[in-house]
Structure formats: C-alpha cells, structure tokens
C-alpha cells in the first residue's frame, strides 16, 4: 500500500521526467481537478440543502480534506519543512488564507444575491488570476492573448450554464 502511495506521490508531486510536455501535464491535472471540484459540488449541494449550513459544511470539508492529504503526503511536507527557507512558506500560508476568503465570501454573497448574479461574478475568477499573474509573477507565468480570450469565453460560458 505504501509503495502504491509512494508511486502515486512521485507522479503527483512533480517528479515526472521530462518526457512529457509539462504544459499538457498541467492541463490534464487541471481537468482532473475540475472533475474533482465539479463532482464534489454535487455532494456539497446535498449537504447544504438538507443537513447543515454552508460555512459549517465547508469547515468540516476543509478539515477532512487536510487530514486526508496529510495522511497521503506527510513525507513531502516533512522534506519541504527541512529544505525550504522560512520565507518560502509566506505565499503558501497566504494561499490558504485567500482560498478560505474565496469560499467564505462566496457563501456570504449567496445569501444576499440571486445565483444569476453571484455565480457569474465568482465564476470570473480565472480573469482575476490572469490579471494578478500578469502583474505579480510575469516571469513565472507568461500570459498570452489566446489564454486571455479562452478565459473570457470560459467565464461567459459558465455564466450561461449558471443562469440556464
């Protein structure tokens, strides 16, 4: 079991050799991620509709998720704690803060806005990512016009799907 998890960990955490185009690995991972988020939302919708409040559900979901991922990848965390400089953890901590701001404020906005307004607003976050990437990490992530046009079409499409 540990060998299987170890192999999975190798693939998942970036030790893949340079045989494959990194960009395609990234896009494939992003599609798998969308499948995970998209299918998870079905279970989430059932819980918040029938059983408990949205913030409570999210809090427990994050806790369970943290325990699961820690159980699978605690060795990577151990290695990173030993090898990474302290300042490297600052953006990592802010990643958690920004993600939780996203979730919490999304739920709070849903209480006050109809879905046809909140869904397109929140669904536009890829455009925010593009703008922030262009401003702050231009050296790490080069943004092209094709990506911008593609993201705009995805956001408009998601707006239609959310309204429909």
């Amino acid at each position: 079991m540990h060998k299987v998890i170890g192999k999975l960990s190798n693939v998942l955490t970036g030790r893949i050799s340079g045989k494959l185009d990194n960009s395609w690995i990234g896009i494939t991972a992003a599609i798998i991620s969308a499948l995970g988020y998209g299918s998870g939302a079905i279970a989430s919708k059932h819980v918040v509709t029938n059983h408990t409040g949205p913030v409570t559900a999210t809090a427990f979901s994050l806790l369970f998720g943290g325990i699961l991922v820690f159980g699978l990848f605690y060795r990577d965390l151990k290695v990173d704690f030993k090898c990474s400089p302290t300042k490297a953890w600052i953006p990592v901590i802010f990643t958690g803060i920004s993600a939780s701001i996203g979730v919490t404020f999304w739920f709070l906005s849903m209480v006050r806005l109809p879905l046809v307004v909140s869904a397109p607003l929140v669904g536009a976050y890829p455009l925010v990512s593009i703008i922030l990437a262009w401003i702050f990490i231009r050296k790490l992530d080069m943004v092209s016009w094709k990506t911008i046009c593609g993201a705009v079409l995805v956001v408009i499409g998601i707006t239609f799907v959310s309204i429909g």
Partner: peptide, 27 residues
C-alpha cells in the same frame, strides 16, 4: 465532498498551476 474536492480537486489544481501556469490552469 472532501475526498473529491481536496485530494483530487485542490491537489490537482496546484499540480496544474505548477506545470501549466496559474492563468491557464485557473481557466
């Protein structure tokens, strides 16, 4: 929901960001 959203959703999200970049992966 946690199984689907975090070991799959968020982990692959960050792997996607690492290999394809924040802008493309987010889109």
């Amino acid at each position: 929901n946690a199984v689907l959203s975090y070991p799959i959703g968020r982990l692959f999200n960050f792997i996607g960001v690492k290999y394809a970049g924040a802008s493309r992966a987010s889109s």
